[in-house]
């Protein structure tokens, strides 16, 4: 099993006609992802690599029964594209685009929560999601992931997501699903959402988590691990030696309440029983030891 996406997930690509969308759409299709439609308001009726283009997500869902969408639309159009997907009837939205204003993210996060509570958004500014051997939505290179299990990965950083997949493949360890949640201020899917899903997935027996400095998402994840996870977790927090990030004035400092440093995050995770590596390689080695003892 896997979480959020599998071999039956059928996907609409918003922006499939663009240079990024067509490039990664082709790679995802070659991997085996079921790409059933693309959308473009003015190119309905045309095709990209044999994939039919519809005017909008609603029409594409009606024609194909797609359950997921992937957004490769430039930042100014992302807010509209996310809501178009939700209104069009998909259950799972992956927004790859970077550079989306924080106010837009806060707006569509709350709009979805209120009006489309069953829709899951992943991103924006994320590498996407891969259930190795089944489905790859986004910009992860499929061949660096070994299919199977028993490890689930959740990561806030793009390239470190690849690094984590690679570390495990080097050790011949398979992955059920790897979720890149993205590092923006208001991610649609959180660490906790993924940890919860991995905890419930019978084929995932351990979880590798990659965090970054800033915000308090890792501390919140640590709380969840402590209280709700029975499966072992290894983790790494990037930015151990980074100078304190730009402090967002006095109000920002209060919101974070002294949280946000790598040291605070690592301590919280260690207290919660997670195994904390000092770099991605060490986190991979810790996971190899965990897997050997499963």
């Amino acid at each position: 099993m896997s979480i959020f996406v599998d071999e039956n997930t059928s996907v609409i690509y918003q922006g499939l006609t663009g240079s990024q969308g067509s490039y990664y759409g082709r790679l995802n299709a070659e991997y085996g992802t079921r790409i059933v439609a693309g959308t473009h308001p003015k190119k309905a009726g045309t095709e990209v690599d044999g994939v039919p283009i519809y005017a909008n997500v609603g029409e594409a869902v009606e024609a194909t029964g797609a359950t997921a969408s992937c957004i490769f639309i430039p930042a100014p159009g992302v807010r509209g594209a996310v809501m178009e997907s939700a209104e069009g009837g998909v259950e799972f939205i992956v927004a790859i685009t970077e550079g989306v204003p924080a106010h837009d993210e806060a707006y569509f996060y709350n709009d979805l929560k209120r009006n489309f509570p069953d829709v899951r958004l992943l991103g924006p500014n994320c590498p996407g999601i891969i259930s190795p051997g089944k489905c790859n939505i986004g910009i992860t290179a499929g061949h660096i992931a070994k299919p199977g299990g028993p490890v689930g990965i959740v990561s806030r950083s793009g390239t470190l997501t690849y690094q984590a997949l690679y570390e495990l493949k080097q050790k011949d360890i398979g992955v059920t699903t790897c979720v890149g949640i993205g590092g923006d201020p208001v991610p649609g899917t959180s660490f906790i959402d993924c940890l919860e899903a991995f905890e419930a997935d019978p084929d995932t027996r351990a979880v590798m988590m990659i965090g970054e400095i800033g915000g308090s998402a890792e501390e919140e994840a640590a709380e969840f691990i402590k209280n709700n996870m029975t499966k072992p977790v290894s983790c790494y927090i990037a930015g151990v030696t980074a100078p304190p990030g730009k402090k967002m004035g006095h109000a920002g400092a209060i919101v974070s309440g002294g949280k946000g440093t790598a040291a605070a995050k690592m301590e919280a995770l260690a207290d919660a029983g997670a195994q904390v590596g000092q770099n991605p390689t060490e986190a991979g080695e810790l996971m190899a030891r965990i897997v050997a003892e499963l």
């Binding site: 990561s155 806030r156 950083s157 793009g158 390239t159 470190l160 997501t161 690094q163 590092g183 990659i210 970054e212 400095i213 790494y236 990037a238 930015g239 151990v240 030696t241 980074a242 000092q278 770099n279 991605p280």
Partner: peptide
């Protein structure tokens, strides 16, 4: 960005 931070680490 993550790999760059990790490299500094």
């Amino acid at each position: 960005a993550g790999l760059a931070m990790s490299t500094v680490d």
